[in-house]
Design a protein around this nucleic acid. Structure first.
Lengths: 308, 308
DNA sequence: AAATTTAATAAGAAAAATCTATAATTTTAA
DNA sequence: TTAAAATTATAGATTTTTCTTATTAAATTT
């Protein structure tokens, strides 16, 4: 049994086809077929059922493949251990980012990061907070960027920045006359928030000290753009995270009303597993983001709002 | 990186010497040296410090070797999965047995077992109950034989037999006149028990409803033989497990006094991890033991004494 | 039923793992 | 301190394994 055999076998199980699997492994189809056969011979069991359309696993095959997966995964960690110890910033890095941070933060650092660390193979995915926690614990994610504190003692949080909340209030609304707003000004009925599942929704609801939103309609949107457009057309207001307001048109910007000091804000952190593998990449990433944010957010006096 | 390279490297770390490691791996020394070098080259780090007398690991080497160990261990499980699924009784099997069971039980089944299942490579170790639990959870043991219930919900217990307790009372002692004894007859001061750490000690103390033994001397012995010899010479009595009494001399046997129905007894079980790998071996082993015990212990009416 | 896709087989080429022989180095002992 | 012994590294030959190309066989699609 060799690691190569296990990798080839996993590829077949994944794509359900010997020819494609061979491509994926950068070898010819006979090579891959023979290695899979050798493994089957050595173990003395058929792993695949070659008769079905996408090639299927035999019952014992699926148990063996599960084990093969853990062996291959453990063997891939070897490189991480070396990079870790050498302090090298390289290798695959799976990063999850919550949707209310992704569109504003990612463009700010991605380009520079991949130029500065070309050996890092970033895999970015948008995930809500609970998926991030779950995948981090399962080792299917190397780090996440989320609103904190999470109060999960199996994960490490390193705060990156504090992002103030900003009110978006159209001219037609009475609050528009105020120079600075306060949480107490806002009534639950008039505020539009993101659909359930976004922690930013919780932030806003918490800020306004209300637990349920009962309106004459039900809004399911995950985009701040939709919210802003709706607010422009109706009798409502909404609350945005600061970074979201930077790229707005100057017309929309006129509708922004900042909170009175101390400004309510959310804490955005990079979150990772206690195993601490890939620490060099995590540090490179967080330093880069912190550097960029220092130029974008001037935070003097903020009041933290928890996401949970 | 290949599994072979990892195995060779682990062997060097274990024996601290390339030449011996090569022998252990059934290859020549240059072969092993070159493979270790290839691994070092591929990872880009020196794993061993060749200058020290027994070859030592570099700091990064020791981290890599830890990972190598888990990879190799996981890959060895592959065969177990196959045997498991095929129901084959073969492969390495690490069994821990508590010291108060080992000397009586082992001779009863070992010879027959290795004849009947020559493909099983039994590794037997005497371990106290807590070591068994710990090693089972850590995967360093495949099964244990111990007094139960353990009340550990991460382990599975399968009772093998119930072993009554028997009093050993010299003629000089007043209790010697009774045909059957009862727990209530026994005073804590007159009973000799095994040293701390043996669960049989707990059994006996529990039976006699006493928690501490305060004597004019302190006995540290793990052997029933010592106990019996002491009892023969002094004003004390002791309690033995039934199987221990079978091979006694007829002189000593005359000092045995059985308990009145229901006889107090301990439960001896085979204990194993929930992962249930190696179930075929576990079943073969427990069937064999049960079969043999059926002939040795006729248990009618017993009263279970817990070990904890 | 013909064409296409997909997996298995065969035979040779390339790569690798291993061996024997030997050199270099370190350790031990005189 | 030097000679002998033990241990590791290197070199070249040999065997084994892996991989490729070419082809066959089987299954699926048209």
């Amino acid at each position: 049994m060799t690691l190569t055999q296990l990798e080839y076998t996993l590829a077949v199980a994944e794509v359900g086809n010997f020819t494609l699997a061979a491509e994926k492994c950068f070898v010819t189809q006979p090579t891959l077929s023979m290695q899979v056969q050798k493994l089957e011979d050595e173990l003395g069991v058929k792993l695949f059922n070659r008769n079905t359309k996408p090639i299927g696993l035999t019952p014992i095959g699926s148990k063996i493949l599960t084990q093969a997966k853990t062996i291959v995964e453990e063997s891939k960690r070897m490189d991480d251990i070396v990079s870790m110890e050498k302090g090298e910033v390289k290798g695959e890095f799976k990063l999850g980012i919550i949707p209310t941070v992704m569109p504003t933060l990612l463009p700010m650092f991605l380009n520079n990061f991949i130029k500065k660390y070309p050996k890092v193979n970033l895999k970015i995915e948008d995930l809500n907070t609970s998926s991030i926690e779950e995948k981090l614990l399962g080792g299917r994610l190397d780090a996440g960027i989320a609103a904190t504190p999470l109060e999960n003692n199996k994960l490490i949080e390193k705060p990156l920045y504090y992002e103030p909340f900003v009110g978006y209030i159209p001219k037609s609304h009475p609050l528009s006359n105020l120079e600075f707003i306060e949480p107490i000004d806002i009534e639950e009925l008039e505020i539009l928030v993101l659909e359930d599942g976004h922690c930013f929704r919780n932030h806003v609801l918490k800020l306004c000290k209300t637990t349920t939103i009962s309106k004459s309609f039900d809004l399911k949107s995950g985009s701040f753009e939709t919210l802003v457009n709706l607010v422009n057309e109706g009798p409502w207001i909404t609350i945005l995270p600061y970074l979201q307001t930077l790229k707005m048109s100057s017309v929309d910007k006129a509708n922004l009303r900042y909170f009175k000091d101390p400004e309510p804000a959310r804490e955005i952190s990079i979150v990772y597993n206690k195993s601490q593998l890939k620490l060099p990449i995590i540090e490179a990433l967080s330093n880069q983001i912190e550097g960029i944010i220092r130029g974008a957010i001037k935070f003097d006096n903020i009041q933290l709002v928890a996401p949970k």
